[in-house]
Design a protein around this nucleic acid. Structure first.
Length: 391
DNA sequence: TCTGGGGTCCTAGGACCC
DNA sequence: TCTGGGGTCCTAGGACCC
């Protein structure tokens, strides 16, 4: 089962401000500035406004009474948390895909709750009663079909696709609904005359691979036949932390680049430390006038989470290029490559060496040392570290 | 028309090692 | 003068998703 909140950010704003209800509302960039629409209310969609549309274009289309708001991510995150909690009351297997989307494994819930339709209605009602928002729900034999089913009827929809209905459900839909056919690869297939999923399904695996590449071709071939994973995973660990900003006007002063990297390093470092992570890859991202984008990354020998170290690495990366003087549109910075278990083990062994080297090899001392190491890394890993030393 | 911000994943070449 | 094959890591770019 896939659950997708309807116009999530916009709906929260309309819920919390009754005066906004029934009016076109846009959450996103400030009108007159650079940026795009994050989400807009259904009243705004009637004017053809969509997510990711440049804000300037949205302003051109929308009437003067439109409400424009900047996103309040902290508030939306809190509502999201409440929703996910409510969904856990239906099935313990909830996979949060984003702030407004989740998969639930409801196989085996039928005896407890009832047929799929009853489970779908239950999901919608716990969300409506819990946070006062509507969601669209899709139920299908795998993740792809559930996701496409929740998209099928919006807002406030409930679509159930049984296993023997999958092909009939997919075939007439435009090929762009398939995951991974975006702005570049969808036109590749459209240029050879394909329009619907049925058209794609008529192509052989070999032909699709030839047009899209081996991996993408295989994936699209599977999807067109309704084949996809039916697993609901636990939420996986994040792999990177990044911060970036686009300037209202392109800048040329390297001091502003420096200050921005400094700010981004503080933001990223703060989150990393809060989550107890240290990363060994620092990446700088620069977008010049005209949208030309470059990244430069560096792998450190010692993972870090300190603002100073992250900033230093980023600033060096920036300075090592012939970039100074070019008008800059965006500056960003990221950290990834978390210290692996092996790296942690090596590091703790080093710490152990360091501490033991400083002390007389008395048994009592050794125990104290092990306590010190275990305070830092946990009891289990100390045993691991000691064993490692014997090898 | 003029393109946010936060992510993940894939590709591809080169280095390096066995 | 000609130089395999496989695996892994590093780096840069880019497609795609929400």
């Amino acid at each position: 089962m896939h659950i997708d909140l309807d116009a999530f950010f916009a709906s929260i704003e309309q819920r919390d401000h009754p005066e906004y209800q029934g009016r076109p509302l846009v959450v996103g960039a400030k009108p007159g500035k650079r940026g795009v629409v994050a989400t807009c209310s259904y009243e705004a969609r009637r004017y053809g406004v969509r997510s990711a549309m440049p804000i300037s274009e949205a302003v051109r289309r929308l009437p003067p009474e439109t409400v424009y708001l900047r996103p309040s991510m902290t508030r939306y995150g809190e509502v999201s948390r409440q929703i996910m909690q409510a969904l856990e009351g239906i099935s313990p297997a909830v996979e949060k895909v984003s702030v407004d989307e989740a998969f639930l494994d409801i196989s085996g819930m039928q005896r407890l709750i009832g047929p799929p339709e009853v489970i779908g209605r239950r999901a919608k009602s716990v969300i409506l009663e819990g946070v006062g928002l509507t969601a669209s729900v899709g139920i299908g034999p795998n993740r792809l079909i559930a996701k496409l089913a929740s998209d099928f009827r919006k807002p406030d929809g409930l679509t159930i696709v049984l296993a023997d209905q999958v092909q009939a459900f997919l075939d007439p839909q435009p090929l762009t609904i398939l995951r991974g056919l975006g702005a570049k690869s969808a036109p590749v297939l459209q240029r050879i005359g394909l329009r619907t999923v049925a058209d794609v399904r008529r192509l052989s695996l070999l032909e699709l691979r030839r047009h899209l590449g081996d991996l993408a071709g295989t994936k699209i071939h599977e999807q067109a036949h309704g084949i996809a994973s039916d697993r609901v995973h636990l939420d996986s660990e994040r792999k990177s932390i990044s911060k970036e900003t686009t300037f209202n006007e392109d800048i040329t002063d390297p001091e502003i680049v420096r200050d921005t990297l400094h700010w981004a390093a503080q933001e990223v470092g703060y989150i990393a430390r809060q989550e107890g992570r240290r990363g060994s890859i620092v990446t700088v991202k620069i977008r010049f006038q005209g949208f030309e984008t470059h990244t430069r990354s560096r792998t450190l020998t010692t993972p870090t989470s300190t603002d100073k170290e992250i900033f230093q690495q980023a600033w060096e990366l920036y300075q090592s290029e012939q970039w100074v003087g070019r008008p800059v549109r965006l500056v960003g910075l990221g950290v990834s490559g978390w210290a692996s278990d092996a790296a942690k083990a090596a590091e703790q062994a080093d710490l152990f060496d360091e501490i033991t080297a400083d002390h007389a090899p008395k048994q009592e001392r050794l125990y104290q040392t092990m306590d010190a190491v275990s305070d830092k890394f946990g009891r289990k890993s100390v045993r691991f570290g000691v064993r490692r030393r014997k090898e």
